[in-house]
Amino acid sequence: MAEDSSPDDAVQPELQVDVWRGGAQGQYQRFTVPRSANQTVLDVVTWIQRHRDASLAYRFACRVGMCGSCAMTVNGRPKWTCRTHVRTVTRDRYLQIGPLRNLPVLRDLATDMAPFFDKWQAAQGRFSGSHSRRDPLAVIPPQSHERQAADAAIECINCAVCYAACDVVQWQPDYVGPAALNRAWAGCNDVREADRGRILRAVASDGGCYSCHSQQGCAQHCPVGLNPTRSIAALKRAALASLSSHG
């Protein structure tokens, strides 16, 4: 038995890997990659870039699921590749690795993330406080209801996996998407936020929360276990309530 094989990791000698090459009009290129124990999809891409074609374009940084830069489409599903073990996505030693869906392809596996982050801004996913640096720090007790409610939508790593999984993003180009709306809801839950109305007005306009069909493709794929659909449902209620209270 090979030294590096573990009982839960049926190590086969090689993987057949199709990797997207070129821009939007590119095609898949086949590589044969040696299999190793606990190999991640990012390991596979890195091996190809180091040993077969140094010009392969892709993105990563932390390799531990923190930075959100390594997302790609793996066998048809959006995945964070640094934390996706090969054995969890293929049984027949075949991988198809492409760029994330719903974003312009720059080259190979790298997409242009600008539209994704522009939409965060459109959904007002930024903080506006009322205190200056001379004021004392805001104290929010960890056990308080407000602080606990805020837990629901934080910890997003901006990987755009949910954005790539969402069909409404594909169908309706101005839809801001699950991540931006999830971020907007996190902002609404921040007790220090001084202008909640700004966020609710933004998410209630065209391309905002009311475009979501609640299919939950986003929640199915979010690698850190967030549920943007839940945040969007909460936004729908909050936006409706603020509309009816302001006339």
């Binding site: 066998n75 048809g76 599903r77 959006p78 869906r101 790539a164 999984a165 069909d167 069909h213 609640s214 299919q215 939950q216 493709g217 929640a219 199915q220 794929h221």
Partner: peptide, 14 residues
């Protein structure tokens, strides 16, 4: 269905 759509929520939607 494309793999990313193979879940109960999508079937219900469809």
């Amino acid at each position: 269905l494309r793999p990313s759509r193979q879940h109960a929520g999508y079937w219900a939607f469809l």
